[in-house]
Design a protein around this nucleic acid. Structure first.
Lengths: 202, 202, 202, 202
DNA sequence: GATGAATGAGAGTTCATTCAT
DNA sequence: CATGAATGAACTCTCATTCAT
């Protein structure tokens, strides 16, 4: 309601909910398989088994569909990270951060191609308060942990850690890796190394 | 060599070379300023001060222009990394790697927006032998150093190091950082941490 | 009577009548505020507080709604002119005609924007016997008065008088005039001038 | 260049000029025959014998085409009125005004249906400085003459005269009149009547 | 009867690419 | 070789209308 990317109608009825989901499902598949260039509203509608008119009943424009996809994906990441943080409550700083990063990785590897494409697509999207908030929340999750240990610029540290993890994941996926465990281990080395210098005695 | 992305004619004559450069210059500026969506062949031609017909005399299609831009950028990175490697010849392993990563960062920060856009654009480009080779060469540069010290999978290690550096750079740029030094220092921490576990005694 | 523009059901029941009125009310408001381009059946239904399905229960298509609006407006004009004619019964020819023209003006100024938009919309409507008859009746009203005084082509004279009045009104409205009196006076000058030449001695 | 309705490229070459003219010609015909609803950019392009892409090389959007048509028509009217004013230089006030109104009528009757449709279309057009100026100039033409004789609000008088003439013309055309002379005579009666009351002794 | 999700023809517009000059 | 007018497939999006519930 408040933003240009907001969906058009809330899925109150069951049929509506299904149609909305079908649209996102179809759009996600298309985006993963064909990239941004292959994601056209007509293709999405056809793949979702609905008419183009119906598609526009649920999303005001193409960007809103991408936004919804992104939001969905982010919500999954956020939830996974929250769960990981809770599970490792009480552990050492770097252990908690690594658990979160692992969780994030696992989420991303569920649909690697889609995650990749979404990351690229985000740059072409207009600023949206909802998406911004989600982005902030993901980072805040890490900031929260870091802030318990040192004062100095936890925002930057959180950004760095998440970014290096994302970079490594993306490259690994492109190189054909599909298993999470080995990649996670390597990521941990970088994360721990990064963090060790920040801690009072490491 | 005779691929879809190869330029149409060798720049033997001086005027040809200049026109080609003007096209790339214009395309790069447009891509950096307006993103992929703003990069149209007609705009490029106008910005380059030539006709659309002439543009197609030098590049067979739009993707070839993006490919050339990418190639140019990669060549710069490669050269910078080679120079850094030579300069730090004889230093410790991690010192050499860090020097290369720093060099890469510096190159990328010369035109941060362009580098970002190119990275995104690459994913939509068809596979091209020329670009693949360059990508390999960059990685090989790091592999060469790593291989002197340990046997185990230097390719993956090189990929990881480059990827985490790229991820951090990209996030930093998006967050508005413009200075190279602080970012380089943070990157070094991650790189050293990652590598330390690989070395016999670190 | 059974034309394409005829409403679908006779408003025998009270609820029906109310719904029909609500539709016209909503359509009129929309047409006045947003013009023909803003008048969509879905908007009308929402503004009328009913579903799009119900709207089509009362009017077979969009043009029928515009037709009804036009008919309603014409009926108002016709009634006003009849009343004016009766009130000025026995007065001089030009006085009677002027009274009618004044009445018409007053009607039109009750919803100037709507009247304007309707006039434009009429041209895009298909021919409809009902509307044609009303148009004729308005003109006949004037013809009736004129015919009492001279034979020569009272139809044309009536048309001319009404048309010049409509033209002046429309231009005045567009120029921002809202008061009826001054405009009515100016209109009278033109009407009297036009008629004077037709009378035996004026 | 300054407005949204401005054409895209100046017709320097001969071929260009022809294409531009063909577009306006086709659009005018379509508008006259089918009304605003029948005027689609694809139809215009087909009727003009060009591709839709070419059409958009000359006009940035559909409204610009309508604007150009309107401008063309207005320019004709303006020229005709100027000529009439010069021809009747030195004559009495009402004679000059009537000459101008006659000229206007003649212009409008050259393509009656088009003139009608254009008048309706103008209401849907966004404000455009160029068109506004032309509109002003037409009125100014009459104001200039009126101002020589009396001070009181020549703008309103000019507007009234032009509006009543336009109203009568439009109604006459719709009624099937095609000859200018009789209509012009009737118009003169109204105009003289209107003006007579404004003159000192008339 | 009322509802509103669904439809799909068709609108306006863009842009990579060609080719006559 | 350079030019730029011309092309047209393809895109995003609208809206009058239908019909299962």
């Amino acid at each position: 309601m408040t933003t240009a990317l907001a969906p058009r109608k809330a899925p109150r009825q069951d049929r509506s909910r299904k149609t909305r989901d079908a649209i996102l499902q179809a759009a996600g598949g298309l985006l993963a398989r064909e990239g941004l260039r292959g994601l056209t509203t007509n293709h999405v509608a056809r793949a979702a088994g609905i008419s183009i008119g119906s598609l526009y009943q649920y999303y005001p424009n193409k960007q809103a569909i991408i936004g919804a996809l992104l939001s969905q994906s982010r919500a999954g990441v956020l939830a996974a990270m929250e769960a990981a943080a809770e599970d490792s409550d009480g552990a050492a700083l770097d252990a908690v951060v690594c658990a979160m990063v692992r969780a994030r990785l696992q989420e991303q590897l569920r649909q690697p191609a889609l995650a990749e494409a979404l990351a690229r697509a985000e740059a072409e999207l207009p600023d949206d308060p909802g998406l911004s908030r989600q982005r902030t929340q993901v980072q805040a999750q890490v900031v929260g942990v870091l802030a318990e240990y040192y004062v100095d610029d936890p925002e930057t540290a959180a950004r760095d850690v998440l970014a290096l993890a994302e970079g490594m994941t993306s490259a690994a996926v492109r190189a054909g890796e599909t298993e999470a465990a080995p990649l996670a281990d390597r990521m941990e080395r970088a994360v721990r190394g990064y963090l060790s210098a920040l801690l009072p005695e490491g």
